[in-house]
Design a protein around this nucleic acid. Structure first.
Length: 486
RNA sequence: CGGGGCGUAGCGCAGCGGUAGCGCACCUGCUUUGGGAGCAGGGGGUCCCCGGUUCGAUCCCGGGCGCCCCGACCA
């Protein structure tokens, strides 16, 4: 294996050989991100950041449509603020980074670098919420947060990461519950419609919920190695924080009440999920809707054919002109680099469509269009090509989602007992679902049945209808999704 | 935080008690261009750090630091 690597340093590790190394090779070689001198902290390079910006824009537009506003809270949080909600502190304590010095001297009170912002937000909103007329409050912020992780991985788990965190306050428990569902739906829309990633929504078990939440819901996506990735979470915080922080409002009946609160977040981890959902041994495969470059044009020029080369350049210029910003198009005019290397370069970066413009095809007024996801190639007339690109991209987007959904379905099983659960994982990691009573001791038995197995969520799209729990046999209400998870 | 491994050019590595090399990448020129081109030339190193042994240490010894991999915790 090492010999092979030496023989061909350009090669990225095949997925079948070592999926984790494939992932790291791809992230680095596609120039999405790189390591930095600070342990656990990565740099997001322009190509990776362009992808993040596209995701950000899509999500932000959805937030705005549902009446959310962006604002910004400080990075540093006083220790005393963080400490008010007991469960929350306990949950986050091990991963909080502290600032203890500033201005050349010890601080009187240590400042936490935010691991999330519930505490500072509640502290400030105490002054801003007084009446039912002040509700609901629906805000969001796009920020960095810091969690001291022991084992880090590019995009998947880094000490500092970028995310959005939404925070809302409501008059009633049910209104907050609706918000929790709405935002999980937003995340689902992002994944399925933009990232071409099918997801499974459901409720987290108590052991997996957010520290300080009444309950947490998640969407879970399947990576190409069969492992699950929690792709977005939305929490009902009840009155846990608003009581702890003394947020009160006078309700419509002139009674003093604590508002009900939600929070929900999605991080740059989603990029890791995108990579591992679609990529292949040639590198990334970007869904067109978020691809930084949607179409790349490779001109084939010959130094001994000035006439043909001029025709090629003319055709390329025509494509550029007619596209006129309707798709994100890049022409690879680099000199001294042969076409094959250009193909490999853009395939590694996952560009959905490649247009090859050469004199041979142009003789028939045509160009070659190749689809990254499956190598499908076709000859299309130059005439009207630009107008067809949006449609080709839309077809690609749909085909990517369909393929991912098929893979998810093929790799999902229903089980009715622990024995079946164990058998399901005998060959390879899968998504196994089965009736579950939701008792902590049964969750433990399930986790212990298969190495590294976890209950991902209680599926929102299935009910057990009293079928026997796979662990204890008692009538169960839920269907648990179990999988190995990142 | 336990177990293992590694620190030599940007990356991957070799090497040796006598002051350092290979592949890839990079730069220049020429020839090339329908699947990761060829030839020629070139630049680039506190050999992780600090001590010790030695006439002499990148190499041997001691200590430190850092990183990676595997396990317990996590969006």
């Amino acid at each position: 294996m090492i010999e092979q690597k030496r023989a061909d340093p350009k090669r990225i590790t095949p997925q079948s050989e070592d999926f984790d190394r494939w992932y790291v090779d791809t992230v680095l070689r596609a120039e999405l991100a790189d390591y930095t001198p600070v342990r656990g902290c990565m740099v997001i390079r322009p190509y990776g950041f362009a992808l993040w910006e596209n995701i950000q824009r899509a999500l932000d537009d959805m937030f705005k449509r549902t009446g959310h506003e962006n604002m910004y809270f400080p990075l540093l949080i006083p220790e005393s603020y963080l400490a008010k909600e007991a469960q929350h502190v306990e949950g986050f304590a091990p991963e909080v980074a502290w600032v203890t010095r500033g201005g050349g001297k010890e601080l009187e009170e240590p400042l936490a670098i935010r691991p999330t912002s519930e505490t500072i937000i509640c502290s400030l909103y105490t002054d801003w919420i007084h009446s039912w007329r002040d509700l609901p409050v629906k805000i969001n912020q796009w920020v960095n947060v810091c969690r001291w992780e022991k084992r880090t991985r590019l995009f998947m788990r880094t000490t500092e990461f970028l995310w959005q965190e939404g925070h809302t306050f409501h008059e009633t428990y049910d209104e907050a519950a609706d918000e929790v569902e709405t935002m999980l739906g937003t995340y689902r829309e992002l994944h399925e419609d933009w990232l071409a990633m099918p997801v499974i929504p459901g409720r987290k078990t108590d052991s997996e919920k957010f520290a300080g939440a009444d309950y947490t819901v998640s969407i879970e996506a399947m990576m190409k190695d069969g492992w699950a990735l929690q792709a977005g979470t939305s929490h009902h915080l009840g009155q846990n924080f608003t009581r702890a922080y003394g947020i009160q409002f006078t309700d419509r009946g002139n009674e003093l009440q604590h508002p009900y609160q939600t929070s929900w977040g999605l991080s740059t981890r989603v990029i890791g999920g995108l990579i591992m959902s679609h990529g292949d041994d040639a590198g990334l495969i970007m869904p067109p809707k978020v691809a930084p470059v949607q179409v790349v044009v490779v001109p084939i020029v010959r130094s001994n054919d000035a006439e043909g080369s001029a025709l090629v350049e003319e055709a390329v210029a025509r494509i550029e002109r007619e596209v006129a910003g309707s798709v994100r198009l890049r022409v690879d005019r680099r000199e001294g680099i042969r076409p094959g290397e250009k193909y490999a370069h853009w395939e590694l970066r996952g560009v959905p469509l490649r247009i090859v413009v050469g004199a041979k095809d142009l003789a028939e007024e045509r160009v070659t269009v190749v689809r990254r996801m499956d190598g499908l190639d076709q000859m299309l007339p130059l005439d009207g090509l630009a107008a067809r690109l949006p449609q080709l991209l839309a077809e690609t987007q749909a085909a990517m989602f369909a393929r991912a959904r098929n893979e998810l379905e093929e790799r999902s099983v229903h089980v009715t007992s622990l024995a079946e659960l164990v058998a399901a994982f005998a060959e390879r990691p899968v998504f196994a679902s089965g009736p579950f009573c939701n008792r902590p001791e049964c969750e433990v038995r399930i986790k212990e049945a298969v190495h590294a197995l976890t209950v991902r969520n209680l599926r929102a799209d299935r009910t057990a209808d009293g079928a026997p729990c796979i662990a204890c046999g008692d009538p169960a209400d839920h269907v648990a999704l179990t999988a190995r998870a990142y």
